Computed example of a mutant assay.
Amino acid sequence: MAWEPSKFQVSLPDDFLPLLNQRNTNVSLDEQVKVTLAVGLFLEKKVTLARAAELAGKSLSDFIDYLSDRGIAWMEYTEEDRRLDDQTISKLLAEEGEKDA
């Protein structure tokens, strides 16, 4: 199914409307949906953080703030990252200890 690039219509159950209205009365429903879709695509790893921010119509820093405010991790810190950090810290501490000796 092909969508018109600039707009298309989605049918939602009536139960969604009161919940969406509670979220932020200063932001249009279109804006809320756009940001929510961008967040979803980012979380599914379909788009990068920068691309999600662009799709949401936000600057990268504003998008990161949006995610952070909602407790959504915006970067990954893997076990490999931790291992490398631990090695670096150990090395720096050892070098510092050699200087003090």
Rank of each mutant, 00 (worst) to 15 (best):
A2C: 02
W3T: 03
W3N: 11
W3I: 08
W3L: 12
E4N: 14
S6Q: 09
K7H: 14
L12K: 11
D15I: 09
F16Y: 14
L17W: 04
P18F: 06
L19K: 14
N21F: 13
R23P: 00
R23D: 04
R23K: 09
T25M: 07
N26S: 15
N26W: 08
S28C: 08
S28R: 11
L29R: 12
E31K: 04
E31A: 07
Q32G: 06
Q32T: 10
V33P: 07
K34G: 02
K34T: 15
K34Q: 14
V35M: 03
V35I: 14
A38Y: 03
A38F: 01
G40W: 03
G40N: 09
F42I: 02
L43R: 15
L43D: 04
L43K: 15
K46P: 00
K46C: 01
V47M: 15
V47I: 12
T48Y: 06
T48W: 06
A52M: 10
A53T: 01
E54D: 12
L55V: 00
A56V: 07
A56R: 07
K58A: 09
D62E: 14
D62P: 04
F63S: 09
I64A: 11
D69Y: 13
D69G: 15
D69R: 14
G71S: 07
A73M: 08
M75C: 13
E76C: 02
E76M: 10
E76F: 09
E79V: 13
E79I: 07
E80M: 11
D81M: 09
R82F: 09
R83W: 01
L84H: 04
D85T: 08
Q87F: 11
T88W: 02
T88H: 00
L92P: 02
L92A: 10
A94F: 04
E95I: 00
E96Q: 11
K99Q: 06
A101T: 06
A101M: 06
